[in-house]
């Protein structure tokens, strides 16, 4: 790594090797395991993170969520999802 990653609609986000996603039955939520850290994801973040698998662009990912949650405006979903993933990217838990 040598430059700050800035996500945009064409980025293809994925988790880096050190971050492992899994559903934890004991805590009943999705979690990301990373060195010295455990992220417990809320229900919405859990939905989003499952689509972060290195196959979808951010735009496609937002489209899928917009179809699924059709009561929310796409622009709002895009803003929230981008902010959430950028936050994880700044901490090194999402790469593209």
């Amino acid at each position: 790594m040598s430059e700050r990653l800035l996500l945009n609609s064409t980025s293809v986000p994925r988790l880096p090797r050190h971050a492992k996603l899994r559903f934890d039955r004991a805590r009943d939520c999705w979690i990301i395991n990373a060195p010295e850290r455990v992220f417990e994801l809320d229900a919405i973040a859990g939905e989003v993170i499952q689509l972060v698998d290195g196959t979808r662009t951010l735009a496609i990912l937002v489209d899928e969520l917009a179809t699924k949650y059709n009561q929310a405006p796409r622009a709002d979903i895009e803003r929230d999802v981008t902010a959430m993933l950028q936050n994880l990217a700044d901490k090194g838990f999402v790469i593209a």
Binding site: E3, R4, L5, G92
Partner: peptide, 8 residues
């Protein structure tokens, strides 16, 4: 180094 190296 934001996004390059996380420092604890």
């Amino acid at each position: 180094l934001k996004g390059i190296l996380a420092i604890d």
